[in-house]
Write a protein that binds this DNA or RNA. Structure first.
Lengths: 116, 116
DNA sequence: TCAATATATGAATAACTGTTCATATAATAG
DNA sequence: CTATTATATGAACAGTTATTCATATATTGA
């Protein structure tokens, strides 16, 4: 057991933390969002789609990588509702599904002093 | 090569995307931030520390898990500058190092309708 | 219907990462 | 100085995941 100067104060903080801790399910959902946008290959796709909707070929052109790899990552992004897809003839056209994602990206970018 | 109706439009978007794509290094830094906060065990620690600084024992009390696991995760959070530590006698007292992190967490939480 | 184009997907592999176990370091009390 | 408390850390293992390869599906033109 911890016996620090601030024992009482830290204990109260710990109790409050336990009381206010989101449930496992919410924690998991938040974690899943961050996991989805924590992969460079997926981040690039999201950055690319800021310029507007694109069919898969042009996404590949924008971000690089193989057709299969990009398609797999688009699936992950689609499953997590961050991009949406519609068919247009032979093509599938992708676009950002969620403005919140961009807001989060921009918040972190400015924090890191990345020019986006 | 893609031959969709919007060929010209998508091609321009792809060109713009390539031109405005952050460099590999910036992409990597952004991805690293999200990776750090994409693990439930680390998220819980960050949520806990919202209540104020705590020594390790009380962090463990707040988030659960073994001493070793929590200590390892505190190290990851410290390496990525999201929490800071100071010694206080026998104890190491941790606290949030970065308000930006909380802003990002709250943004995502409200988006997901999690009560935090 | 057949060929070509565009995209998706399943399986396998390789790389990464969180936890555990055992142990090390640091500070303090006696 | 020794024992105890508090925290950190290295190695190993297990689970997860991104990519690749091969192949499947879907749309269109001939």
């Amino acid at each position: 057991m911890a016996t620090c100067d601030r024992e009482a104060q830290h204990h109260m903080a710990a109790e409050a933390a336990k009381a206010n801790m989101p449930g496992e399910e919410d924690i998991g959902r938040v974690a899943a969002v961050f996991k989805t946008i924590s992969e460079p290959s997926r981040l690039k796709i999201l950055f690319a789609l800021r310029q507007g909707e694109m069919c898969v070929y042009h996404v590949i052109e924008a971000v690089g990588g193989t057709q299969s790899a990009v398609s797999h990552q688009l699936r992950v992004l689609r499953d997590s509702r961050m991009v949406k897809a519609r068919r247009d003839g032979q093509n599938i056209v992708y676009s950002l599904a969620d403005e919140h994602v961009l807001a989060v990206l921009e918040l972190v970018c400015t924090h890191l002093n990345c020019k986006i």
